[in-house]
């Protein structure tokens, strides 16, 4: 059977329109479920950064210990999550957002109530290379952040450096750096930049907290 050009155009147009319609309905219909999943994951990561790992009822528990707030930054309003940690201490969880090698990376860093010590950090990524850049999502990498300081001895914001070749072999203070991922240099660099760019906006607020705790 011979098909005319006219037939071919009409045929493919109909097929494509039907497929597009099906996908649109699926996407719109499933969105509430997908949104709930992402929200649940966000809560779980915030809790994990503050030291609560493998919580069974994430949403209920999050409502109990965490509260989403917005603080005034220098230029814009900044989201901040206050979490009551296990020892009764208040953790300030800052959301992070940056670029990896292939796509976005993001995470949360929990700062203790002294305004400078890190309680924990969680990172996640969209499409970093498994075994290399994707290692930022492993406990081994994330656990390094516990106890690190965001400020140097003089009290200036130093962020946390992600050091290629290891902190021990560099001239960076061990409290201000973590080991980079071998084979994941671009992701490591992106993560370092994300920490610096995102946390620097919170520095005035963190200093305020530090002053409060020292005067007490």
């Amino acid at each position: 059977m011979k098909f005319s050009n006219r037939y071919i155009f009409i045929f493919i147009t109909i097929i494509v329109v039907i497929c597009a319609a099906i996908l649109t309905f699926a996407s719109v219909g499933l969105q509430p479920f997908q949104k709930a999943n992402r929200e649940r994951e966000r809560m779980s990561q915030i809790l994990q950064a503050s030291g609560y790992v493998n919580v069974p009822d994430v949403i209920g528990f999050y409502k109990k210990v965490a509260s989403d707030t917005i603080i005034k930054g220098e230029k814009e309003e900044l989201p901040l999550i206050k979490v009551k940690a296990k020892n009764g201490d208040t953790n300030y969880v800052l959301p992070l957002r940056g670029k990896g090698l292939w796509g976005p990376i993001w995470g949360f860093i929990a700062v203790k109530s002294d305004g400078k010590t890190v309680n924990g950090a969680v990172f996640d990524h969209k499409s970093e290379t498994p075994g290399l850049g994707a290692e930022i999502n492993t406990m081994k990498f994330m656990a390094q952040f516990e106890g690190k300081l965001l400020f140097d001895e003089q009290g200036n914001f130093s962020s946390i450096k992600v050091v290629k070749g290891g902190v021990a072999n560099s001239n960076i203070a061990p409290t201000n750096g973590v080991d980079a991922i071998s084979g994941g240099s671009i992701t490591s660099k992106g993560l370092e930049k994300m920490l610096e760019d995102c946390i620097i906006k919170y520095v005035p607020y963190l200093k305020e907290i530090q002053n409060k705790t020292t005067t007490k």
Binding site: I12, C19, I22, S27, L30, F33, N37
Partner: peptide, 24 residues
């Protein structure tokens, strides 16, 4: 081949969307 790809791609995206909704 184009028609096959359109059909297959539609099905795969559907599977992907369902997984994201129910097996996150």
């Amino acid at each position: 081949i184009i028609v096959q790809l359109v059909v297959i791609a539609t099905l795969v995206i559907l599977v992907d969307q369902v997984l994201q909704a129910f097996f996150y």
